Simulated scan of single mutants.
Amino acid sequence: MKSSDADILIVPGWSGSGPDHWQTRWEARLKTARRVEQEDWYKPTRDGWASRIVAAVRASTRPVILVAHSAGVSAVAHAAEHLKPGEVAGAFLVAPASERAKRAIPGMGEDFIPHRREKLPFPSVLIASATDPYCSPDEARALAQAWGSEFVDAGDGGHLNSESGHGPWPDGLLRFAGFLKSLSAVPQKVIQ
């Protein structure tokens, strides 16, 4: 699959990924990308954020690829239980937030983390850093296993955001292109 064959939904985490964040840069660079806007970027709620993702998926006209970061990864996992088979072609999940994030970030609702631990109904890759202050490597691996995601160890990368030196993140874009190629059998969009 090529990026032009899909609706790429960018799902930022807490605070919405600023102008230097790789998600914002990818959104500007990839023609078919658009951001899933949340009502409040500083107070994530499971149902609120998940429903915005589900609505964006259902408004799409091509196969959907979700590109989530941090708390956006949690939101994708919560949204998954409301999505029908075939509505999402794949998810590119980066730097999940965990119990560490809930303690460190003000406004992380009690219902948002812990994560849903069921297998995701679409192919996914989870990329995590060994030095992420918001998720331990062990928890990231456990999430990947629970979700049925391919796990990628990003080494010493911090939270994989602009603050950790991942503004444009060209390595991530190459890995994203590889993920798209791996989606050989693209599910057809479910007509409601």
Score class of each variant (00 low, 15 high):
M1W: 12
S3D: 13
S4Q: 07
A6H: 05
D7I: 02
I8M: 12
P12R: 12
W14V: 06
S15Y: 04
G18D: 11
G18Q: 11
H21M: 01
T24Y: 06
T24P: 14
A28M: 15
A28S: 15
A28W: 06
K31F: 00
T32G: 08
T32N: 13
T32M: 06
A33P: 01
V36L: 10
Q38Y: 04
E39M: 09
D40A: 04
K43W: 02
D47C: 04
D47A: 14
A50F: 06
I53M: 15
V54H: 11
A56P: 03
A56S: 05
R62E: 04
I65K: 00
V67A: 09
S70G: 05
A71M: 13
V76Q: 07
A79Q: 13
A79H: 12
G86F: 05
E87M: 03
V88R: 02
L93D: 09
L93G: 05
L93H: 06
A95P: 08
A97I: 06
S98K: 01
S98V: 02
K102P: 02
A104T: 08
M108N: 03
M108V: 12
G109C: 15
E110T: 09
F112G: 10
R116T: 14
R116A: 13
R117L: 13
L120K: 03
P121G: 14
P123C: 02
P123Y: 06
S124A: 13
V125P: 04
L126W: 10
L126D: 08
I127Q: 07
A130S: 09
A130T: 05
Y134R: 01
C135K: 07
S136K: 06
A144F: 08
Q145Y: 00
S149C: 07
F151G: 11
F151Q: 04
V152N: 02
D153T: 03
D153A: 06
G155T: 14
G157V: 10
H159N: 12
S162Q: 15
G167A: 15
W169G: 10
P170Q: 09
L173I: 04
K181R: 14
L183H: 13
L183M: 11
L183V: 08
A185V: 14
A185F: 06
Q188N: 15
K189Q: 05
Q192G: 12
Q192N: 12
